[in-house]
Design a protein around this nucleic acid. Structure first.
Length: 404
DNA sequence: CGTCCACAGGAATGACGGGCGG
DNA sequence: CCGCCCGTCATTCCTGTGGACG
């Protein structure tokens, strides 16, 4: 008891006199800085396209492309905020509306959020999607506004529910006489356009803005600017910043990842009671971020997904690749051992796709000619990370290989 | 040069549980 | 509390296909 308190006391004290952080939040992904370096071109282009809204005419629809962490969301929110400020200043009726369709991942929920932006409360459920849409449009039309709708991570909406909502929104002018809706679609999936109805494609892709990945030098610059307000200058050196930048640049120039790395490395250094962040801390952070991500992902998966993953794990030891058929056979023996029903191969095929999508495994489609077409499957994260995450589930624990 | 393997993956459908208006 | 709507997991049935083999 006494020893325990003393330990705690020490933890608290060392946290209080943190020599690492000044303001840790500046390094968090949701923080939106006042300056967005290396995105000047995109900012002014977006601003120029949206400016007509201030005069009461509808800006063109826009499609924004760029991989994760290239500043799409930050730039869009920033421009929208400035536009809204200007609109209020000069008294024009512009309604911005930002929706992340990964969080609001059904047509209905998107409409509810749209309605909220114009101050209309719709029931969470109970009325049909068509009815919700009709109510939204009629209220919007009575407002005499230019509505600028940002649909972030729009690929999620399209993949799950198709482009119907986009089509209707893009044609909304026909049903509105006093208001207009502009759409800004943000996606990191460059192939997305292929899936779209040609009519939607032409009206939505009126203008496209591309956000290229940051290179290592730009990432370094971004980090340095943030570090000024985030970290104690004594706790950080250029080598560490360069390392974070280059690790993130390797992963398609993802600024979010660079910031995460630096923040987590700082947290690790702090936990150790170190006074400065070392490159070692960054490497530890790299593994920790990966482990957290995968652990979180796996722990929330349904039972059969975990079993399929375990089957893949068992079949791919010492970097051997496996196929869908092999996985299914092995998966079924696992189900037998647990005495539960197995799902069909069709379903397992989908589960494999899901695991591939979230990046836990790599499933590449190949044709072995006479020996059929299948997917070559291998793990995409370290084995111990998988094992660790799966052992969180007491139900399948008995199937895991004995350690040592 | 056509077959035919071993699946991929689309479409239709259903069981089930959760959440909310009435 | 009921009824309605929704999302999720799953099944059944199905058509499609790259390329080694014969």
């Amino acid at each position: 008891m006494v020893a325990y308190s003393d330990e705690l006391e020490e933890v608290f004290n060392s946290a209080l006199k943190s020599t690492i952080f000044i303001n840790r939040d500046v390094l968090r992904p949701e923080y939106i800085p006042d300056e967005l370096p290396h995105r000047e071109e995109q900012i002014s282009k977006l601003g120029a396209i949206l400016a007509p809204a201030l005069r009461g005419s509808k800006p063109s629809n826009i499609f924004i492309y760029g991989l994760t962490g290239t500043g799409k969301t930050a730039v869009t929110k920033y421009v929208l905020k400035r536009l809204y400020g200007k609109a209020i200043e000069i008294g024009s009726n512009v309604v911005p509306c930002y929706i992340n369709t990964r969080q609001e991942d059904t047509t209905y929920r998107v409409i509810v959020r749209l309605a909220e932006c114009i101050g209309l409360k719709l029931p969470f459920t109970g009325i049909s999607t068509a009815e919700a849409y009709r109510r939204f449009l009629s209220v919007l039309d009575s407002r005499d506004s230019i509505m600028i709708t940002v649909l972030d991570e729009i690929d999620f909406l399209i993949k799950k529910h198709g482009d119907e909502l986009l089509y209707r929104l893009s044609r909304s002018s026909d049903e509105l006489s006093h208001s207009r809706i502009s759409i800004i679609g943000i996606t990191n999936d460059l192939k997305l356009v292929d899936d779209l109805d040609p009519r939607v494609r032409s009206s939505l892709g009126e203008i496209e803005i591309v956000f290229p990945p940051y290179n290592a030098i730009q990432l370094e610059d971004i980090l340095k600017r943030r570090v000024k307000t985030a970290l104690n200058p004594k706790a950080i050196n250029d080598a560490v910043i360069s390392l974070c930048a280059s690790l993130a640049a390797r992963e398609h120039g993802d600024a979010r990842r660079a910031l995460d790395l630096l923040r987590v490395a700082g947290e690790i250094a702090e936990r150790e009671g170190a006074e400065t962040i070392s490159t070692q801390h960054v490497y530890i952070a790299l593994r920790e971020i990966e482990r957290d991500r995968v652990g979180e992902l796996i722990s929330t998966m349904p039972l059969h997904s975990k079993l399929v993953l375990l089957a893949i794990y068992n079949l791919t030891r010492n970097s051997v690749k496996t196929t869908t058929g092999e996985v299914y056979i092995h998966y079924r023996t696992l189900c037998m051992k647990l005495g539960i029903e197995s799902v069909t191969q069709r379903r397992v095929s989908d589960i494999i796709s899901e695991l591939d999508m979230v990046g836990i495994i790599t499933a590449r489609l190949i044709s072995r000619g006479r020996y059929g077409k299948t997917r070559m499957i291998s793990l995409a994260v370290p084995e111990d990370v998988i094992l660790n995450a799966l052992s969180g589930d007491s139900y399948i624990e008995s199937l895991l290989p004995r350690n040592r």
